[in-house]
Every structure is written in C-alpha cells, then in structure tokens.
C-alpha cells in the first residue's frame, strides 16, 4: 500500500469472518473502510454480527479469517494491548470502573501509556470540558453518583483520552432516554468536528445512523447487505431489509410532520 493510502485509510477490514463455537457464523466476509475523520455506522438488528465485527477490530475477539489493517498495519502483527491503547473503545453499557472516580476512569489509558501525571491531569480536565461536564464538579465523582447520560459522557471521554485516531462505539447512545440521547448525539457531532477522529459506530437505530454517519453498513445474519452514504440508502435501498429498517424512522418523521401541519 502506498504511503498516501496509509494516510487515507485509518481502518480497512477485508473478508472478515468469525465462527463461534456451536457453528454460528457471526460475521461472514465483512469488509469496511474508514478514512481519517470518517464515521462509519454499522446498523442491523440484534444478533446480526455488529458487535462481533467491532470487537475483531481491536482484537477483543480473534477474527477467524480476513485482514484488518489499522493505519496500514495488520492488527494481527501488533501486540493486542498496544493496539487497544491506540484505539478508543466505548462499550455497550458504559463499562466504567465502578471503584474509580471520573478522573481516574478517564486517566486509565494515558496511565497505561505512561504519560506524566501533569499531562494526564491537564488532559482529564480538557476532556471533561469537551464532553461538557464541569471538571470541578465531576472530577472526583464515582460512577454510581452520576446519571446515565453523564456516565456515557465519561465513557466517551475515557475512550478519547489518549488521542486515538479511531474510536469504536458499541450502542453508545442506545440505553439513554430520547432527550438525553439527542443532546449527547449533538455534542458528539461537535466533538468529532473539533477532534477529527475516525469512528465505527454500532447501532440498531437507523435514525441515529442516518444522523451521525458518513457511510452506513447494513448487516443481517453476519453479512453486509448494503453499504452507502445515508442519502444512498434512503434514495436507493438495495435490499428489502434496508427498506424495512428505514421504514421506522420515516414513519415517525411523517407522523410528527402530520401533527405539525394539523396545528
């Protein structure tokens, strides 16, 4: 691969397959690329293989077949721990360490990378402000003393702490109530604009994908049924399943529009 291509693609997944014991083919020849600063959404119903695909990228599970290149390097040739420290990870559920304060949670990866305490402290405050939480108020708070939305903000701050070029998010906003989710999604867009990291976002919510993604991968039973920009999908759905997924947000939008006209 040419140096230009390495700079261009933060992530390139080719022919990824994963068999679980018991014969389930959770990922079947999945391919995707993410350019610097690009957000790829993986959409599909529960059990379609989204999490499996995502975890193969930072080797939380070992892929069965295929190649995964992170910044042009084959992830299988890298030390798995080093790899994970270079990639931000927001897991399903917030996954905060319950015995650590917000600041300590955020500082975890920088500490593993042996940053100086001063640099870590400065970075923690910077991130708390980026995710719009008052450092003075939140720095020393334990997770159980925060709301779900606040915990999710800390989880995102933790994932971004070591300035990763790539962020992996697994249903990061799914567990939140609609108002909190909308607020966090908005802030996330702003955050990405500022920090320019690439991201792979797993979600079962097509509306969220349409709102946030540059490109969307629709998965079903471990296979990619369509890849395209949000407008590609909306205007040229290539599969009945995609149409079905798009129906729900479209129906909601129509219902709201109708009510507004009725006013």
């Amino acid at each position: 691969m040419s140096p230009a291509a390495i700079a261009h693609h933060v992530l390139r997944v080719e022919g990824l397959s994963k068999h679980y014991p018991g014969g389930i083919l959770a990922a079947d020849n999945v391919g995707l690329t993410a350019a610097a600063g690009e957000l790829i959404a993986i959409v599909g119903e529960s059990g379609s293989g989204k999490t499996t695909t995502l975890k193969a990228i930072n080797r939380l599970i070992e892929p069965g077949a295929g190649t995964i290149l992170f910044q042009g390097r084959d992830v299988m040739s890298l030390d798995a721990h080093d790899l994970r420290r270079e990639i931000g990870w927001v897991m399903q559920g917030d996954g905060l360490f319950p015995h650590l304060t917000a600041a300590q949670n955020i500082a975890v990866t920088p500490r593993l990378l042996k940053w100086t305490p001063a640099r870590i402290a400065a970075r923690v405050d910077e991130l708390l402000e980026l995710v719009r939480l008052d450092p003075a108020d939140f720095r020393d708070r334990l997770p159980h003393l925060m709301s779900g939305g606040q915990r999710q903000r800390i989880a995102i701050a933790r994932a971004l702490a070591a300035e990763p070029p790539l962020l992996l998010l697994d249903e990061a906003f799914s567990a939140l109530d609609p108002v909190t989710r909308a607020g966090l999604q908005e802030d996330f867009v702003a955050l990405r604009k500022r920090l320019q990291f690439a991201a792979v976002l797993v979600t079962h919510d097509m509306a969220e994908a349409l709102l946030l993604a540059n490109r969307i991968l629709v998965m079903k039973d471990g296979r990619v049924v369509q890849t395209g920009t949000p407008s590609d999908l909306v205007n040229r759905p290539g599969d009945p399943y995609v149409t079905e997924l798009l129906a729900a947000p479209a129906k909601q939008a129509r219902a709201v529009a109708a009510l507004e006209q009725a006013q």
């Binding site: 420290r85 990870w89 996954g95 593993l112 933790r158």
Partner: peptide
C-alpha cells in the same frame, strides 16, 4: 464481566486488570 471486558478494551494486560480492577 462487563467491567472485566472494559479493562481489556482500554488496553490493560491480564495482570493489570487483576491488580487494578
């Protein structure tokens, strides 16, 4: 198990996960 996976996800080794989490 979610917390244990979080420890792996942020890049802790098995030993670091044991001691710190």
């Amino acid at each position: 198990p979610v917390v244990r996976e979080a420890a792996r996800g942020v890049g802790m080794t098995a030993r670091q996960s044991l001691i710190e989490v």
